[in-house]
Design a protein around this nucleic acid. Structure first.
Lengths: 195, 195
DNA sequence: TTTTGTTTACCAAGTAGTAGGTAAAATGTC
DNA sequence: GACATTTTACCTACTACTTGGTAAACAAAA
């Protein structure tokens, strides 16, 4: 009958992931501890270990959830009836939304720390970026086909470039506390697609 | 007369910085400890604290040295008689060299960890990027003037974009162990300047 | 009454950082 | 040149605290 207990049921792991994700996005994987999460949620570290036995397992769940949520957003974009150009704009808007929340893309942050991550997290990260690049590549090809986009490069390589540029712009916009830098990068990347 | 003593004289702080820089570039500021450096140099942690009282002071010295070395490389580029276009190529070659050494740009790495750094390090980092962007902006303006470059954007904003894109490309090339991604980004950025 | 989630109370190892001491080199001063 | 003094560069041994992680007891549902 205690609401904070009843409400938690089955949702506790999600709330742990919420807090952990925020910490990774602002501080990085190596700069947060179970104690930090415990303090926010007013539970003990031991309780966190019940849901996520190790930090590595927590990290892996973090990436899995992040990718599946990202995938859902892409599915929504795919379902709408926008041109490829508009869909790519929507894609960039996802990044912009994260930045507006004073966060770094979680997987961009983890990419910086790549060398220090457990193997399973590295593989999950690879998968996340592969998914992103594949989606973008498809949109680029589509846009070339229906003439809503205009560019010279190989679509796969251009997709990789766009992801890298967005991550880099996000990182520097955040450290300079200047979202305008990111939006300028967005505009320039779109200009490179002839839109 | 002991060579490892005589040789060390006055150079020990430099050797400490060398090791620390390598660790930051591959693992990040939050993922290395004095113990790691001590192990490489076969000295005690206390000895490191003699030269750099705190990790923050070590970090600050790290950025100061990195910026002054970077500045020297830019001065060499300035001194040569290349076109602006060629000078910008040389600038990108600095980044490529770091990546070829399986390292991330030290300041790019620190930018990801920005939120967790002591204030003095944050300010030093701002200064590093400001210096980079100002140099690039000047080269872009110069290239517009002597018609060796062709682009539509504001030079300052374009300079910021190029730095961000290089950092992002470097970060993802490193995590994918695929230097080709970075070189593709280089080519695309140069193409955006009409070269 | 078993399952689920939590707490208390730990642990071994690692973190940055300090105290106090030592040998040797550098710098005076006679 | 010989002497005392200071500085440099290091060490051993420690403190105070944090890290990820565990075991066992306990509470609340189902």
């Amino acid at each position: 009958m205690q609401d904070s207990q009843t409400a938690n049921r089955n949702e506790t792991p999600e709330r742990i992931l919420d807090v952990a994700q925020g910490l990774v996005q602002t501080r990085g994987y190596n700069a947060f501890s179970y104690a930090d999460i415990a303090a926010v949620l007013h539970v003990t570290k031991a309780s966190l270990h019940y849901h996520f036995p190790s930090k590595a397992s927590l990290g892996l769940s973090l990436i899995a959830r992040y990718e599946s949520r990202f995938r859902q957003l892409l599915d929504v974009i795919d379902a709408g009836n926008q041109t490829s150009a508009e869909q790519i704009r929507s894609y960039m808007a996802i990044y912009a939304g994260v930045l507006a929340d004073h966060r770094m893309c979680m997987c961009g942050m983890l990419a910086a720390e790549f060398e220090t991550l457990p193997k399973p997290m590295q593989s999950a990260l690879d998968h996340f970026f592969e998914m992103n690049e594949a989606w973008l590549e498809a949109k680029l090809r589509q846009g070339l086909g229906d003439t809503s986009l205009r560019f010279a490069d190989e679509p796969r390589s251009l997709a990789q470039f766009i992801v890298a540029a967005l991550e880099g712009a996000m990182m520097l916009a955040r450290s300079h506390a200047d979202d305008a830098r990111f939006h300028a990068a967005e505009r320039r990347l779109l200009a490179g697609l002839g839109i």
